[in-house]
Simulated assay, not measured.
Amino acid sequence: MEKGMLSMVSFAKRFRVDRFKGVVPQQNGHWGAQIYANHQRIWLGTFKSEVDAAMAYDSAAIKLRSGDSHRNFPWTNITIQEPKFQSLLTTDAVLNMIRDGSYPSKFADFLRSQQGETDVGGAGGGGGLNLSSLCGDGNFFCTLLFQKELTPSDVGKLNRLVIPKRYAVKHFPTVPESDEQKQSERVGGEVQLEFYDREMCLWKFRYCYWKSSQSFVFTRGWNRFVKEKGLRENDTIAFYLYESKDGQSFIVIDVAKKDEEQHEVVGCGSSGREEDSNKRKGIRLFGVQIYQP
């Protein structure tokens, strides 16, 4: 786990979700959430991703800090219903649901009962954050970093994805080498990279350099991604940088199947640079137009 630690520090500053209010890293790689109310620290639990912990803080803040305008994520057409949901519950009930992980599903049940919806969005079972809701109010804008059409070997038995060198050098951290690795002619160092998909599920990949083929590759974690996403030859994967107006940022890995139609639509927020959309080409990503820089 120590391999690539220094490189990952600088990488995290650029590509991982920035530090959120009420979120603290744990030694086991998970993320804790906490909130202060009435001069007391209230522990909200431990979560697998930083985004989940940040969402837990936002939900708790509705009940405990109603006058606090600072949120980790902007209000969406889904989360705007949370105050009404929580008004039916005691403070202890809300906190207990956040801690035991049942809050998203119970909030989803509430939305269905109120609106008759069968799909209220979000990863892992409704009521959660997804990129469509994030971009819906224009608080986030996105930039295409790069995309790649998958080759037979990328989705085959080699269980690895080759990252084109020009993109690896530009967008990913330098892969360090230990003394032992410097003696090897086959493999360089490795780091772990983290990305979110369109449902805001966290994906972790081992990223390393193969000296024998002079290739930058994703290894561990890639095969699972291929299977769960149903990837095939000639499908395309793309990496996007999402940034908010208040400085939060994260990287999204997304998939475009070869037979999917692409359309041009309105972008998901302004980056502060006014440009003529007729002069820029992009692709449609889950309901928003992503323009190439």
Rank of each mutant, 00 (worst) to 15 (best):
R71C: 07
G4M: 03
S213T: 14
D235C: 03
K281G: 10
H171I: 00
D100V: 08
T90Y: 10
K281H: 13
S69H: 14
F110I: 04
Y167N: 15
F110T: 07
L158S: 15
V23H: 05
T219M: 08
G29Q: 12
R65S: 06
E2A: 14
I253M: 07
A54W: 01
G116N: 12
L231Y: 05
I251E: 01
S212Q: 13
G101R: 13
V155K: 06
H39T: 12
A54V: 01
P176G: 09
H171G: 11
Q262I: 03
D179N: 15
S153P: 02
G126D: 02
C208D: 10
G45Q: 06
K182E: 11
V51P: 02
V9H: 14
P173Y: 09
C208S: 09
I237Q: 01
L64I: 11
Y242F: 11
L285F: 00
V51E: 00
I163Q: 03
R65Q: 10
L202N: 03
V255M: 00
T46H: 14
Q26R: 10
F225V: 15
L111D: 03
Y57E: 01
G22E: 05
R160C: 10
E275A: 07
V169L: 14
S87E: 11
G230P: 05
L89D: 07
M5I: 07
R206P: 04
K157C: 14
V266D: 15
G221S: 11
V175M: 02
S59C: 09
Q214S: 08
E194M: 13
A54Y: 00
A168Y: 03
T151C: 08
E185S: 12
R224A: 13
L241P: 05
A168R: 13
R206T: 12
V288A: 05
V23C: 07
A93Q: 12
A108R: 09
W31E: 06
S215R: 15
R160S: 08
V226D: 01
G189S: 08
R232C: 07
D246W: 04
R206S: 12
V162K: 07
M5G: 15
R19V: 09
G247Y: 04
Q183I: 08
N72P: 04
F239P: 00
E117S: 12
G45Y: 02
F172K: 04
T151L: 09
F216W: 12
I283W: 13
A60N: 10
R273L: 01
V217W: 04
N234D: 13
K21G: 15
G125Q: 06
V252G: 06
S277Q: 15
T236P: 01
V94K: 03
Y57W: 12
E2I: 13
K13E: 13
